[in-house]
Nucleic acid binder design. Structure first.
Length: 848
RNA sequence: GCCCAUGUGGCGGAAUUGGUAGACGCAGCAGACUCAAAAUCUGCCAUUCGCAAGGGUGUGAAGGUUCGAUUCCUUUCGUGGGCACCA
């Protein structure tokens, strides 16, 4: 029952749209996060403050004396959109930057070339500044708990302490972040991220080679690989840190499980309290200090906070959770560290070395960026002849020298990521044609937040966080009146394709006599899944296999492959049309008929108790034509109508659940709609609905249905709502209730579920109905009937023949029906049919 | 590896907040109507023992809490999604 207002269609790739994406980018660039007010403010406010009052690190005079570059560097540290050097996956052979999912096992997915980390200048959004507000905002929106949990975990707020450890025999210090300062006496080693700046400075001469080798290894690995690795890897640097409390020397290791981007890129490892530290210590035979007495059994770490501390100097005999605060106080007192709130979330990378994206409205003069002014927007994406990367791995725009080089400076050649436009597009729907602003404040105030946003959980930590941040920035700057974009979020599940496979015996490689066997002459044998499993598991399948294979078939195989005493059997996995598979059982006859009979002569080797089942293999994967696991919705609409299709989708299961698409049950929904129709119109009798008064039993059915449907609809439980409709119609049919009083109420409920049929019936309740009463409407006023097909036809209920009908059915224009068959024509004998009854592409009844 | 979700008959699923497990639908079986179909209607349909009456078992697995667990807790296995350049 809903519809789209196509006047409001937008495209984020349209310059009329992305001019405003660039405009918002400029707002981000020209704003900073004011910690005192916890909101975005124009960067001029900060500049003014620096010019007049200075900052804790410099006076106003110093600021004014800074060079342009120095000033810009300081401001860049505060801008909400900022540029700095960051690491990317660099593939030298392809000359381009790769996404993490284009890197598999350290090499490029395409071509298998090596991929390394490379530092390049990148743009970022300072989403970390909004971490707390993104957390708080979750309390005000109606998202699922799991969605909120995913966002909270992504933001990963933790409270702890940052502290500096002296490094033995060196001037510099190792800064670590820990949430458990109470375990300071249990630190048995340090782990530093391999890419940490200190590594090169502190590695000992003896360990240098090993460290370099390990760093090179880590460089080739993606973060995901690093985190997912079960194997424990690491390398001792040869350096020691000093525990400030007991002066114990602590060996410093590097390992890939510590990431440079999180915290300080270094941790203090407490093996008795942390599982990963424990495994690391075990693996490298590092002695473990027990500070929690019997809570540590020596076999696994125990991360409790309830233990009483031992071997812990001034913290002895304290409960761990009480010791946390005491330890931090002591650390602060000694000036070796301080309380620190840490976030797992990092600033969001905002530049891509790609062509397709919004160009940045930024010019560079050396290392100093400057922004275009809003009236220079849009900065349109220029035409390129080639999409190849720039000389230094920049995006393709770098190759257009005349575009890049302007009198005012060198253009930024990266483009914005896909999420730039999608972070604010909902606002543009509210005011899509405004050329003066991205969205008039009046329009955004009027429409307010998005009432219901429907999207998958895959957006949890990407799009949904970005658009929440952008909304907060626009709110802070006064351009919109709310700081959360989506009032309610519904995660719909993904409809997947459930692929099915048959296994065809492969003759490749079986002819050891120089390829004299023509595979075309060999029979095609499909083996059921059980045998395929046996092959894959290298189980000796011959006995079972041979026993159930037709002997003559095997003989013919062996005769042709004379050089092989027993063939090494392999089989190829072939996609089979999922529509001819019931569960996993293949409809072999249909399979043989498909593909123009390509497999009509094939042999099938079955399994099961009766040895009569061909069982397919199955995988749930992306829906795709080539995988034969897709269903054409047009075909279903043609056969069943849009209402049936819609209701069946709802009937499939909970809307938030992903599931493989399966059309098996659609017949039931269609039957329900036909049954509903028959409450109003009988196939032969025509109109059956009446104006009688409903009795108590009928009203009970009605009102129970109203209550249930209301509840189900409110909680988006559309599948149970459809069940409720079915129960209602069954009960009304059983009690032979055709009363308008009841039926019209059912139609009101049904309207959002089956709008076309509901509307059609509603009209007929008002105008007595037409001659086409018994045809079931599909959608858009069309009826479920196809012309030029062969239908069995009956006249006055008696079957006479199968005929070809050329039907030109339009609503209430029955005289246009042409029966192109002499015999039937004779029967009809010039009598215009009173009624055509059409029963789902199976049967046509003509009533004279 | 980490985070989130999920697991119930032959199949999709229901059980709304701890209270009769399997609603509703598909498939299947049997029957009615029919010359025969189609359509429609009726009955059966978790599993096991039993002629039946009736009993046992049963919501991925193993424990636990409870008078009572598909539901809550712990552990574990499988599957799907995400893990920062897909968005």
């Amino acid at each position: 029952g809903f519809c789209f207002d196509w006047d409001r269609e937008v495209r984020t790739s349209d310059p009329e749209f992305y001019t405003w994406t660039q405009w918002i980018f400029l707002k981000l660039y020209n704003s900073y996060f004011c910690n005192a007010q916890q909101k975005a403010r124009p960067i001029e406010d900060l500049v003014k403050k620096y010019e007049t009052k200075g900052d804790k690190n410099f006076t106003a005079e110093q600021w004014n004396a800074f060079s342009k570059k120095e000033q810009e560097d300081i401001l860049m540290n505060r801008r909400l959109a900022f540029s700095k050097y960051g690491e990317v996956n660099w593939c030298e052979a392809l000359g381009t930057v790769l996404a993490n999912d284009e890197v598999v096992n350290g090499v490029s997915e395409r071509g298998g070339h090596p991929v390394v980390k490379k530092k390049m200048r990148q743009w970022y959004l300072r989403i970390t500044a909004y971490a707390d507000r993104l957390l708080e905002g979750l309390e005000t929106v109606d998202f699922s708990d799991s969605m909120k949990e995913m966002q909270r975990n992504w933001i990963g707020k933790s409270e702890g302490a940052e502290m500096d450890f002296e490094i033995k025999g060196a001037g510099n210090k190792l800064r670590v972040y820990t949430t458990r300062p109470d375990t300071i006496f249990g630190v048995d080693f340090m782990v530093v991220a391999p890419e940490h700046d200190l590594v090169n400075e502190i590695k000992s001469a003896e360990q240098a080679a090993a460290v370099d080798e390990y760093v090179a290894y880590v460089k080739s690995r993606s973060d995901v690989d690093r985190m997912a690795e079960k194997k424990i890897t690491g390398c001792f640097t040869g350096a020691y840190a000093i525990n400030p409390f007991d002066r114990k020397e602590i060996p410093i290791w590097i390992s890939e499980y510590v990431l440079a981007g999180y915290g300080t890129g270094a941790i203090m490892a407490v093996p008795c309290g942390d599982e990963r530290d424990f495994k690391f210590a075990q693996h490298f035979n590092i002695p473990i200090t027990n500070i929690i007495g019997s809570h540590f059994n020596g076999e696994e770490a125990n991360s409790t906070k309830e233990a009483v501390l031992e071997n812990s100097g001034f913290l002895n005999r304290l409960l761990m959770k009480d010791a946390i605060g005491i330890a931090v106080n002591k650390i602060e007192e000694l000036g070796i560290g301080k309380r620190k709130v840490n976030y797992r979330m990092r600033d969001a990378g905002f530049s891509r070395q790609r062509y397709w994206g919004e160009p940045f409205p930024i010019l560079w003069n050396g290392e100093i960026p400057s922004a275009l002014s809003p009236d220079e927007l849009p900065l349109e994406l220029p035409h390129v002849d080639t999409y190849g990367p720039g000389a230094e791995g920049e995006g393709p725009l770098a190759n257009i020298t005349e575009w890049v080089n302007t009198p005012e400076g060198r253009r930024e050649t990266s483009t914005m990521p896909g999420y730039a436009g999608s972070s604010w597009y909902f606002l543009r729907y509210m005011d899509p044609h405004n050329s003066a602003t991205f969205c008039d404040r009046k329009a955004s105030d009027y429409w307010n937040q998005v009432d219901l946003y429907i999207g998958g959980t895959e957006h949890a930590v990407g799009h949904l966080l970005y658009s929440r941040m952008w909304t907060k920035v626009l709110f802070d700057l006064g351009y919109i009146g709310y700081d959360e974009p989506y009032k309610k979020l519904l995660n719909q599940g993904m409809i997947q394709g459930s692929s099915r496979f048959v296994y065809r015996i492969s003759w490749a490689g079986m002819g050891h006599d120089g390829g004299s066997i023509d595979p075309q002459t060999l029979p095609q044998i499909f083996i059921s899944k059980k045998y395929m499993d046996a092959i894959e598991n290298n189980i000796a399948i011959d006995i079972d296999f041979v026993r159930h294979t037709s002997i003559s078939l095997l003989k013919s195989i062996f005769q042709q492959i004379s050089n092989v005493s027993f063939p090494v059997i392999t089989a190829n996995k072939i996609h089979v049309d999922v529509n001819i598979v019931d569960g996993y059982e293949l409809d072999v006859e249909k399979f043989m008929q498909q593909n123009n009979g390509r497999y009509a002569e094939s042999e099938f080797i079955y399994e099961g108790d009766e040895m009569d089942k061909y069982i397919c293999g199955g995988e749930v994967e992306k829906m795709s034509k080539s995988k034969l696991n897709s269903v054409n919705p047009n075909e279903l609409c043609d056969n069943y109508g849009a209402d049936t299709f819609r209701m069946y989708e709802m009937f499939l299961g909970p809307v938030e659940m992903s599931k493989p698409w399966d059309t098996k049950g659609i017949e039931g929904v269609h039957r329900f709609l036909r049954k509903l129709w028959r409450l109003f119109f009988d196939d032969l009798k025509g109109k059956v609905w009446n104006e009688e008064k409903a009795n108590d039993a009928e009203l009970k059915i009605l009102h129970r249905t109203i209550k249930k449907i209301e509840e189900d609809t409110e909680r988006f439980s559309f599948n149970t709502a459809v069940s409720t409709f079915m129960i209602c119609v069954n009960e009304l049919a059983d009690s032979k209730c055709h009363k308008k009083e009841v039926l019209e109420n059912v139609l009101i409920l049904l309207t959002p579920y089956a709008p076309h049929i509901a509307e059609e019936l509603w009209n007929k309740l008002e105008n007595e109905g037409s001659i086409l009463d018994a045809a079931y409407p599909a959608f858009d006023g069309k009826y479920l009937i196809e012309s030029s097909k062969e239908y069995p036809i009956s006249i006055n209920g008696k079957v006479r023949a199968n005929i070809n009908l050329a039907l030109n059915l339009e609503q209430a224009e029955v005289e246009k029906i042409v029966l192109q068959n002499d015999i039937v024509q004779k029967w009809l004998d010039g009598n215009a049919p009173k009624k055509i009854i059409y029963v789902k592409n199976k049967m046509v009844n003509v009533v004279l």
